[in-house]
Each structure stands twice: as C-alpha cells, then as structure tokens.
Design a protein around this nucleic acid. Sequence first.
DNA 1: TGCGCATATGCAATGACTGGCATATGATAG
DNA 2: CTATCATATGCCAGTCATTGCATATGCGCA
Lengths: 117, 117
Amino acid sequence: MTTTPSPDFYTVHAERFKLLGHPMRLQILDVLRRSPECVCHLETLLGKPQPYISQQLRVLREAGVVADRKEGPNVYYALIDPQVASLLNLVLGPILPSRANAQNILPDCPCPRCARA
Amino acid sequence: MTTTPSPDFYTVHAERFKLLGHPMRLQILDVLRRSPECVCHLETLLGKPQPYISQQLRVLREAGVVADRKEGPNVYYALIDPQVASLLNLVLGPILPSRANAQNILPDCPCPRCARA
DNA sequence: TGCGCATATGCAATGACTGGCATATGATAG
DNA sequence: CTATCATATGCCAGTCATTGCATATGCGCA
C-alpha cells in the first residue's frame, strides 16, 4: 500500500532538517549533546541575550528534540532525540573531549556548575 | 588552536541542513539517491512546473550536492554528496527496492528511459 | 508578604525564502 | 537557418522566519 510516500511525508521530515538549519540552534544542540546545561550557561557561552536563547530553546522543546528539567532556580535543557544526535555526529563530527571541556566550565558564568570552579 | 569552533562553523553546517529542510528538495534528493534522473522525469513525478524543478535543482547544484550531465537533449541530475546520502538514509530510512521501482518508470513520462517501457 | 533572580512570553520590524510565470538559452533535426 | 524540444534564468509579490526588545511569570529566600 505504501509504495509511494504520501505528499507530506517529505514535509514532516523537512521540518526536522529545518530545525538544524539554523546556526544558533545548531550550536545550542552541539552544546547540549555533550551535557545538559541551564539557560544562563548557554547565554554566557553563546553571547546572546537571554530572551533570544529561550526562544530558540522553545522551538527545540516544542519539536520534542530537547527536554527541560527544573533544578532549584535554574532550568536545565538536555538533548533527548537520538536521531538528532546521530545527525549532529554525522555533520559536526564526533564529540571531542577537549572541545567538550572548553564549553562545560566558563570563567564568568553565573550558573551553579561553573561557580563551583 | 581549534578548541572552540569559529563563529561561522555552525553557519556553514546549518546551510547544509537548510538545503534538506525543504519538502520539494528533500523529495528530489530522495528520488536522485536511487538513480540519476532527467529534469522532465522529475517534472512528471513531482507534478510541478518545469521552471520550479529547475530552480530547486540549481540550489542543490550550486551547493555541490548534485551534479548535472547532458545526455543528448536531456540533462540528468545525480546525487554526488555521500554525506547527504547518509543524512537521507538516517531520516528517510534506507532505500526500499519496491519504492525505487515505483519511481523509476512512469507511465506518462516523456523521458527516454520511461519511453522504452 | 515582598523582593530578586532565572526564565518565559508577546509583539513588531526587518529580512529571507517561496513559488509562480514570462522568457532566455542551447542543442538538435529538418 | 529555422523550428522545436528540453532546460535554464530573471523577476516579482506573497509569506514565513528571524531577531530584538519590553514585559510577564514563577520560584526561592529574607
């Protein structure tokens, strides 16, 4: 029966690619695939205003790609979509430990994890 | 040196995702990953006017994802980017032979390959 | 209860992409 | 050399995404 894909078969999957077709979202996902981070950490790391970060996170959250989890006053976002992880791995390359460290702890970041260092 | 990716590192790779973030381009690539096809075949298969098809093919060609090859009066386009092939495989799934046959030969297609059947 | 911090939302202007069409090119056959 | 067929290009208006900013929410703590 399903010999030919339905018309919006491609529309659905194009949406997934569109999500990643945005430099800032792509960078956010590249950070989150290493470890979950709070909004203020992303704000410091990406050097963009907080509402802007939250907006992109909403897009990713509503697409079911990331999940948010409250921890005290902060909200931590995590990448939960394994397919997106595979796509990132394919295009951005595998996660390098050195690069991961460079993004995990930031000097002037107010978030709890960075403050402990 | 390259501990932190350059700012447009993500811009470059987002462009690649943007290419696939379009239903018609995605469908074209899904056809071309099976076998090279001429423009008129795609025109028949996708049911869109020829200038529209050519426009999308140009976008893909200028991005280096597909290549064109003249054969007599027709121009055949082929998918030449292995990374894109991997991305398609990951999101659209592997190529099913049945589905491939359904797209290869079309009843009312003026292209040479279809006319022979 | 009220204050402050972290995050979220709503809105508006700009800019980019989309898709439709008229027309140009280029090769081939007669 | 002309006509025709396949494909390519240029241009335009409509639509959608982007991003910047003002402000709202909500939670913890004094």
